[in-house]
């Protein structure tokens, strides 16, 4: 059985074919590139024009026929309304025309499930750090619970805003990482951990008001915020008594963040898992795979009930497949 998955929560529109045994046969995507971040309507227009060719190419690359598709999965939320709606429309239409069931997938949970598929992690604590999302998630009592999260903006969003004020292009994360390599002096920035939650906007403001050389500020921004993320991840490990850390989201591509998490897991005797880059960033394979798991446990939704959910929370989903 093959599942066709659709991702479309933010700047990426993706289509993927996944086999029920977990083999990813295709995982294609196109990314909207705004000069100043993501304009939701423009991103949605981008997705509308890209999604049909992506469906065709994805099926072709998987080397299957349209008729072989037995399930359609789509990212139901959380995310930007216009993007979600556009991609959900494509998913619904295909579900109706092929007459196959439809499953709506929570994007954050999909990051965790693809990590479990692509790495050896079995029951991990996930640090999910991307533009819009920063959460520490783990399975407990039938649900994926959010043990810690940002109380204001996502870490990527913070890096992008900082970058924009410093004339860096979008996304600014990789540019800040390069700049940080040249820095060596720690500039004093607020360190904002509240229990297992974090805050970034105050740090960004403080960083923008510093007169130090840009490389030192970038260096300090990374040292401070990534240490915060590592700390709350470790707190979640201690709190849930788990011993595996999984990374997901675009920001975890950052080498310094990976090094910190790896170091922390080594010191604690826990294991460290990162999926390949194409499965860390927003991708449709994670949606297809999570949809496959959900459907195998008896979940599907009618088109009438398939409204997108911009504020779809991770812990709302009853995990019937574990």
């Amino acid at each position: 059985m093959f599942t066709l998955g659709f991702e479309g929560t933010a700047h990426t529109v993706g289509v993927s074919v996944v086999h029920e045994d977990g083999e990813v046969l295709s995982n294609l995507f196109k990314t909207y590139k705004g000069t100043e971040g993501i304009h939701p309507r423009k991103a949605a227009n981008h997705h509308a024009s890209e999604v049909v060719p992506l469906i065709e190419r994805s099926i072709e690359e998987a080397d299957i026929e349209k008729e072989d598709i037995a399930l359609i999965a789509f990212s139901q939320g959380p995310g930007l309304g216009p993007c979600l709606r556009t991609v959900a429309t494509a998913a619904r239409s295909l579900s109706l025309s092929l007459d196959v069931p439809l499953v709506g997938v929570n994007h954050c949970i999909a990051h965790l499930e693809i990590g479990r598929l692509r790495t050896d992690a079995e029951n991990p604590v996930l640090l999910y750090a991307s533009g819009g999302n920063t959460q520490v998630i783990a399975f407990k009592k039938g649900r994926y619970r959010v043990f810690g999260e940002t109380l204001d903006i996502g870490i990527g969003n913070m890096l992008d805003k900082f970058g924009r004020e410093n004339d860096m292009s979008f996304p600014a994360g990789p540019l800040i990482e390069e700049e940080a390599k040249k820095g060596a002096r720690l500039v004093d920035l607020p360190y904002s951990v509240k229990g297992m939650d974090v805050e970034f906007s105050g740090i960004m403001t403080a960083a923008l008001n510093k007169d130090d050389p840009l490389e030192d500020i970038c260096y300090s921004l990374q040292e401070t915020t990534f240490a915060m993320l590592t700390e709350v991840t470790e707190r979640a490990l201690a709190h849930t008594r788990k011993d595996e850390v999984l990374l997901g989201g675009g920001v975890v591509q950052n080498r310094r963040l990976q090094d910190m998490i790896q170091k922390m897991t080594e010191e604690r005797g826990a294991t460290f898992h990162v999926p390949e880059p194409e499965f860390c960033v927003d991708n449709a394979a994670m949606i297809a795979w999570t949809g496959t798991l959900m459907h195998a446990s008896g979940i599907s939704i009618s088109v009438e009930d398939s409204n997108i959910r911009q504020k779809f929370r991770t812990d709302e989903v009853e995990v019937t497949w574990r």
């Binding site: 720690l186 360190y191 040292e223 240490a227 700390e231 998490i261 170091k263 922390m264 080594e266 010191e267």
Partner: peptide, 12 residues
């Protein structure tokens, strides 16, 4: 904490 910058670590 080996992951944290030594100066930051000591302060915290």
């Amino acid at each position: 904490k080996g992951y944290r910058h030594p100066k930051l670590d000591e302060i915290i």
